[in-house]
Lab assay of single mutants.
Amino acid sequence: TYYTVKSGDTLNKIAAQYGVSVANLRSWSGISGDLIFVGQKLIVKKG
């Protein structure tokens, strides 16, 4: 599943919304830090 980052989103908010960890969200999407951008597509795998 892809999630497109919206204004005001954080990795914590997105992870909580999908019931996954921030570490997994980073790993799946190839992100090393906490910086995400509006319009960026993140990969989300539901448990």
Rank of each mutant, 00 (worst) to 15 (best):
K46D: 13
A16G: 09
N24L: 12
L11Y: 04
N12E: 15
L11G: 00
G39C: 05
L11F: 06
T4S: 07
K46H: 13
K45S: 14
Y18C: 09
G47T: 13
S21V: 04
G47W: 11
N24C: 15
R26H: 05
D34V: 07
K45C: 15
Y3V: 08
K46V: 15
D9T: 00
I43L: 15
N12F: 13
D34F: 08
I14M: 01
T4W: 12
S32N: 11
K45G: 13
D9C: 03
K41Q: 14
L42Q: 00
F37K: 10
S32I: 14
S29P: 03
G19W: 05
A16R: 11
N24G: 06
Q40Y: 03
G39N: 06
G30M: 08
G33K: 06
A16F: 10
G30F: 07
I36E: 02
S29A: 08
Q17N: 10
L25T: 00
V44F: 06
R26C: 13
K13A: 12
G33S: 11
I31G: 03
V22N: 03
G33T: 10
F37N: 08
F37M: 09
G8V: 02
L35N: 14
A23W: 06
F37H: 11
I31N: 03
R26K: 15
G47H: 13
Y18D: 00
Q17F: 12
G19H: 10
Y18P: 00
K13G: 13
I43W: 11
S7E: 15
T1V: 14
A15C: 06
S27N: 12
I43P: 05
Q17C: 12
D34T: 08
A23K: 09
K41G: 06
Y3K: 01
N24R: 08
G47K: 11
Q40A: 05
V22M: 08
V20L: 08
F37S: 10
N12A: 15
G30V: 06
L25G: 00
F37V: 11
L25A: 00
A23N: 10
L42R: 01
T1N: 12
S27F: 12
I31M: 09
G30H: 09
G33A: 08
L42K: 01
K6D: 05
Q40K: 03
N24I: 11
S32G: 09
L11D: 00
V5R: 00
V5C: 06
V20N: 02
T4D: 06
A15P: 00
K13N: 11
V20Q: 06
L25I: 15
D34G: 08
G33F: 07
K13F: 09
V44E: 01
D9V: 01
S21Y: 03
V44T: 06
N24D: 15
K13M: 12
T10S: 09
F37G: 06
Q40N: 04
S27Y: 12
K41H: 10
K6H: 07
L35R: 12
K13T: 15
G8C: 06
K46T: 14
L35V: 14
Q17P: 00
A15F: 02
V5S: 02
S7V: 15
V38D: 07
V38Y: 05
D34I: 07
S29T: 08
D34K: 06
S29I: 05
G33D: 11
Q40P: 02
L42S: 00
K46S: 13
I14Q: 00
G30N: 12
S27I: 13
G8W: 04
G39I: 03
V44D: 03
G8T: 05
I31W: 06
G47C: 12
V20S: 04
S21Q: 06
I14D: 00
D34M: 08
S21I: 04
S29E: 03
T10Y: 03
G39Y: 03
L42H: 01
L42F: 02
T10G: 02
K6E: 09
A15E: 01
T1A: 11
L11T: 02
G47Q: 13
D9Y: 00
N24V: 12
G19K: 10
N12I: 15
S32R: 09
W28M: 08
G19Q: 10
